[in-house]
Nucleic acid binder design. Sequence first.
DNA 1: ACCGCACCCTGAGCGC
DNA 2: TGCGCTCAGGGTGCGG
Length: 291
Amino acid sequence: MPELPEVETTRERIRPALVGRRIESVCTTAASYFFVTPPARLRRRLVGRTALDLTRSGKYLVATLDDASRLVLHLGMTGQLFAEGAASVRLLSAAARASLRPDEPRTFAPDVHTHLRIAFDDGGPAVLFRDVRKFGKVLLLAPGEKTPRLDRLGIDALHATGADLFAAARRRRVPIKTLLLDQSVIAGVGNIYADEALFLAGLRPTRSVQRVTHRECDDLASALQQVLRRSIETGGSSISDFVAPDGRDGRYQDERHVYAREGEPCRRCRSRIRRIVVGQRSAHYCPRCQT
DNA sequence: ACCGCACCCTGAGCGC
DNA sequence: TGCGCTCAGGGTGCGG
């Protein structure tokens, strides 16, 4: 699932394939809630435009276009943004994957899950947005137009301090993990990095925010920085669907301490990692290292 | 203001 | 070579 490090990795690597190139044609699938902006309007408004910049807000990517409109993308759970020609088994449908022979190239061919294809007038590779579960989002904001999706975001997780966490915790009565996942408090943290940061900070995901000290908030903020920065360095986590825009897997999954390691030994104390449900989400922790 | 929960979707994994 | 069921999960919106 793409969280801040995967979105940042996507931003860095798709940037050269998007910024500075004039859009010649846009193909989409049919209207669905995936398209916050109706696809017909999207196709009409994007043609002829050139992206001037690509930035990240929390888990959103924002391309600023040359007419001051903004193309906003969210990868949701299974979104994949990549350059045409990228090769990875993760870009293949289950059927295509099953029939793949070992010696066969893994080059992607657009399928029913490819909802957006942006081609450019320089004849270079197109940019594709594929999303099997359609939890992703595409919207085009007119010049000056705002959206609560971006406006409601809290402080970016890469810049959140212990004081920020502590201040937010004072106003709430939820488990600490629920606070970390609240995008209006800290933007960019999802299930993987919430669990990993809580492990590094020695905090149980179930701990009430009312019982987290300022000192522990400082430790948690440090843990978040450490986990997120290290994951960006390694190209994110490729646990199920995530693949970088160039088709390469991330490597942070190899450094996980707790996420999706239920029943496996803690890397520090050898206790078995547990999985519980917190705020309708799975949470993984070490019963001995996290209190 | 805050919180829990249903919903959107599809593939994987399960039991039979 | 199957089939039907359940589950996962980000963000939104609703009801309490």
